[in-house]
Design a protein around this nucleic acid. Structure first.
Lengths: 301, 301
DNA sequence: AGCGGTAAGTTGTCTAGGACAAATCTGATC
DNA sequence: GATCAGATTTGTCCTAGACAACTTACCGCT
């Protein structure tokens, strides 16, 4: 295992810190201090990139960069996750115990074992309970484990990939041909699809016609797609990782370009602090999706 | 349908043109010329964003920005795609005819029809032929249709999402427990997963143990995952859309951090012009994956 | 006429430091 | 203990210059 150097674009890719931020930190805090190549361009040693990744992860947990960068290396390693009030409140009611078994499969990198255990639960609980009582809390726990560093990035990726497959497989068996016609997608820079799949499963169970467009649709395309498919509802998902401040603007922007008769449903962990808007339904919890569906149907007989 | 304004970050998100490029074009070519808000920050009218999206698409087809920006609006609309020699050569042997029916379903936004037709083909052809003779050429044709503007972004998204589901469903039925253990993923900024799924299907058919990690794994995490899973092979996919110039550096970077006994296979439409590297297997076509697998097995009895 | 090599033009990305608004923390007051 | 104003922190935007990598155009040679 060698230690090659990263240019600033590579560091942005691998850490998620923008070039602007990397240069700003260097100017303000004196870290990172990359070397320079023959052209005076920054070259980051692998060790600094590694430290930046750690700092980024702790930042995502609520720590502030100024403190983190000042702290010595040993201190960073021992830093506990620092949750916001909202997250703590949401985390508390998780029915943890029997989910640990599932997480243990992921920690052991035992993909077949995980798939089999999940499949069993799906058959035993039925799709609705499986989504609400297994997949949703499990996803939350994985998120927490990722935050406190007890799970690796690639373990989280494996979990996501395997769980996606399970949900899609389950959804494929459902017909879904009644109104409303629901278009499911996410905005650019929001790649998380698990939440959308969970909602799709619940809606498809109620017979709704779901049109899954995957993630990261440009806003204008969402409007076009809604028109082309004559969608009754556009459902968007924002994960907790999505920059909170952008959501409000994005949503009102989309609401303006969307036909007024098309409903707009917004869900996911990212919307807890979002202010209500006219013409936009906020669905912070999974059961809200089922409720919104029933309400839509009662209003469109 | 209103016409709200976009700030520079929103334009970057929706067009894929970086902030640097947007400012540079304004400086050099005098387009776009956004308005300014009270703070002197750029505000792009929707019409300019629309034009930028068109220009970006034509650029992806090989046109040069200088000409496009100088051209009047009407001319842009009539501009034909301009392919490179490589792409033309690759496109020619596509067995087009009976695939048109499938594409027509997508154009009609008929998701159930498409799924049913594909399912039929899968059963009739068997998975291997289905992947090589249906999914692969179909993906190529969709890519071409996207290039010449005869298909909308959201139609391409729908195609991708539905096809992903089909392939994953098919893969789920395969056991796959023999060596080599193959870790499938892509690098950051490479979100295309269809190619990986096609390879996974072919490898799983041969009984190989596939570990799908989804897309966009940071390079360091790929090495860690390979170690944790004791992977024999790491398989990466680069789509045609991935910036060609970055691939060589990324791959040699990864080769350095990866254990020497771990094989590194690189595939996808993006690698056609890539120079060979020591310790890296290039698999430009799908059948190459099956071949590489057989070779690996003959070398590791 | 075709081929190879050099020159000129084009284009994206990097650099620097300055400015400011939004978010967060701190401390004082009710 | 709660609420509000002020101070601090932090990210993103701004301008403008430089240069390397790529493409195209041209010229001379076989």
């Amino acid at each position: 295992m060698n230690t090659p150097s990263y240019n600033i674009a590579a560091v942005e890719r691998d850490t998620g810190l923008s070039k602007d931020v990397l240069r700003m930190w260097e100017r303000r805090y004196g870290f990172p201090v990359p070397e320079r190549d023959a052209n005076g361009e920054r070259l980051y040693p692998a060790a600094q990139v590694e430290r930046l990744r750690l700092i980024k992860r702790l930042m995502d947990q609520g720590h502030r960069p100024g403190k983190l960068i000042a702290a010595p290396a040993e201190e960073l390693a021992t830093l506990a996750p620092r949750r916001t009030r909202d997250v703590v409140a949401a985390a508390a009611p998780a029915t943890a115990d029997d989910l640990d078994e599932l997480i243990e499969f992921i920690r052991q990198h035992d993909a077949p074992g995980y798939q089999q255990a999940m499949q069993q639960r799906l058959v035993r609980q039925g799709l609705q309970a499986f989504v609400q009582d297994t997949v949703a809390p499990l996803t939350r726990q994985i998120g927490e484990a990722w935050e406190d560093g007890s799970i690796e990035v690639f373990e989280e990726h494996l979990f996501t990939e395997l769980t996606k497959r399970l949900l899609r497989q389950a959804i494929a068996t459902l017909p879904g041909s009644r109104r409303p016609r629901v278009l499911l997608t996410s905005v650019p820079d929001e790649p998380h699809v698990l939440g959308l799949l969970m909602v799709e499963a619940l809606l498809a169970l109620e017979g709704a016609e779901c049109i899954p467009l995957g993630t990261q649709m440009p806003l204008l395309e969402i409007s076009r797609a809604a028109e082309a498919h004559a969608a009754d509802v556009v459902a968007l998902s924002f994960s907790v990782a999505f920059p909170q401040r952008q959501i409000g603007g994005l949503v009102s922007h989309l609401r303006q370009t969307l036909a007024p008769e098309t409903a707009l449903w917004i869900g996911g962990g990212g919307i807890r602090r979002l202010a209500p808007q006219a013409g936009v339904a906020l669905l912070p919890e999974l059961p809200d999706a089922t409720r919104a569906l029933q309400q839509w149907r009662s209003e469109h007989p």
